[in-house]
């Protein structure tokens, strides 16, 4: 997305831009991603892609990521397959439900105009 304004663009964790929650079913989780500022939605759509999320969860063995868009909320819902190493049934991980995973997504870095960042002073550039 081309930003024609003179605003600074900051490299920040998603946590500065959006919030979300994990839910689990079987060996699959969903993670919602809800921007604090509605205007951040197109920037998130461009950067928090299915491929980027799959890469971010590679260590957990994510096989498929499906992104659902809710432009009127606005929000995204990510469904990530095979990320629970067997799920509550078989996993040896402490967090067998993947409840903490929303905060792994929120650690992903994005470029964002400073107006849409909660704490611009924490920006990385």
């Amino acid at each position: 997305m081309t930003d024609t304004s003179t605003r600074r663009v900051l490299r920040v964790p998603l946590h500065e831009v959006a919030h979300g929650r994990t839910g689990d079913k079987g060996n699959r989780v969903n993670i919602s991603l809800i921007p604090y500022r509605d205007e951040a939605f197109p920037y998130l759509r461009e950067q928090v892609t299915e491929a980027a999320v799959k890469k971010h969860f590679a260590a957990k063995g994510a096989s498929t990521v499906t992104r659902y868009e809710l432009p009127t909320f606005p929000a995204f819902n990510f469904v990530i397959d095979d990320v629970l190493e067997g799920g509550v049934n078989g996993a040896l991980n402490l967090d067998t439900h993947g409840k903490s995973f929303a905060f792994h997504l929120l650690a992903m870095e994005v470029d964002m105009p400073e107006d849409f960042v909660l704490h611009p002073e924490k920006g990385m550039r």
Binding site: H19, K25, S32, I34, Y68, N77, V79
Partner: peptide, 25 residues
């Protein structure tokens, strides 16, 4: 919003015994 999307996969097709729920609108 966080709770609406909790444990939801396709927000246009949330399957329950009584109805297929669409919350996208």
């Amino acid at each position: 919003k966080e709770q609406l999307l909790y444990e939801m996969h396709d927000p246009a097709n949330y399957l329950t015994p009584d109805v297929t729920l669409d919350i996208t609108g």
